[in-house]
Write a protein that binds this DNA or RNA. Structure first.
Lengths: 205, 205
DNA sequence: CGACTGGACTTGTATATACAATTGAACTTA
DNA sequence: TAAGTTCAATTGTATATACAAGTCCAGTCG
């Protein structure tokens, strides 16, 4: 994504040049992992292109795992190092299927956030690094059973936010996406928390 | 990418609903591999969204490997089946490095095309299926050595057109991208062809 | 002091519009 | 017939504009 034109013809499209501009600054060490990169409007002024063009460039780089974006906050350079920390946990869908019940999941939350200190430490990231956060409610025959609160290192699973967790569990998704390198995460299967009780109740209708 | 909303909040974005619309028709069997899907303008009329929204949906689905687009012609459902046909071929970059020379490559062509009958047969695709086509000139210490003319099955390497083949050889790229399933291709290392002579000469300055 | 409230800034989505580039078919012409 | 030309259809890119949604901070008010 850095070198010369990709299609031999005319000039490189502007959104590609924006991408190359970003990549160059990252690979050159100007912008390091966790750093905030210039906002869309700043890049518009600097590179003299429209915001939509900048937006496309940043969106694609995010999809490719080089950047992480948080709405309302900014765009950040993703943490680079691959992580090899495998935490095995039981597959809730499988467990429910074994009991002869029908498994379903409801996505309560799925977005990018800034990690708090604990999460960042657990994932081996810088403080304030952006992470993907999902909250699912797993159900057996329509009865809410378990809340899964999960934080994922964006680098190892760029497509996480686009996944359809009603059709595939995060576990399966991560296994498919990052077969070799694995991702750390945190799961609460708890009960007492008021917030969790509310989530479970919301599905009991 | 099919089911309910991905981010728990508001209504699903329109470009996502367009994607779901397409995916549903493909998975439902209405549109089969190789079929042409409705044009952007047709989808605009049918789904009552702007062309830019349709364009984004189709572009993303193409990047995900479900569709293949050819400018001036149309959008087609990608061939689904994974192919397990491994053709081992020597790594030109490695070979040059072994001789103590510096390897470089020049991208002469990199785009999507309709396969002719021979290519389609070799790749196990329907006639007129879209394929990715690249032409590289490999050089040792600046001296053009070999022309590599390669056709790749788009399904197994969705990101092929975005790759930077000045930095990584197609071989390495395909090994990284499709580690298990492998892709067939065709390589000419020939000489006599007038077109190839021209390519080699162009780099001799 | 604590809580709330605006407002500025940022990203996310959507539209209308425009032009470029490519393809393929129909047509024309030598 | 064969070659060249025109033309419509399609995708590719780019812009200006607008509003929604989320975050953060400073200021205000109780």
């Amino acid at each position: 994504m850095s070198g010369s034109a990709a299609t031999q013809n005319g000039p490189t499209p502007r959104y590609r040049r924006v991408k190359e501009f970003i990549v160059k600054h990252i690979e050159g060490g100007d912008w390091r992992a966790g750093d905030q990169v210039p906002s869309e409007s700043a890049l518009v002024k600097q590179l003299k292109v429209s915001r939509m063009t900048v937006n496309r460039a940043l969106r694609e780089l995010t999809h490719e795992g080089l950047l992480v974006r948080v709405q309302g906050t900014g765009t950040f350079v993703a943490e680079k190092r691959p992580i090899f920390n495998l935490v095995e946990l039981r597959n809730i869908a499988e467990e429910i299927a074994e009991r002869g019940q029908r498994h379903a999941a409801r996505v309560e939350l799925l977005n990018a956030e800034k990690a708090n200190q604990d999460i960042a430490r657990d994932l081996g990231l810088n403080a304030n690094a952006a992470v993907y956060h999902s909250v699912l409610v797993h159900m057996a025959d329509g009865i809410p059973l378990q809340v899964e609160d999960r934080f994922v290192n964006p680098v190892t699973a760029p497509g996480y936010l686009d996944a359809d967790f009603t059709a595939i569990t995060p576990n399966e998704f991560l296994m498919q996406t990052a077969p070799a390198t694995e991702v750390e995460h945190i799961v609460e299967a708890a009960m007492p928390d008021a917030r969790i009780r509310k989530l479970l109740k919301r599905n009991a209708n």
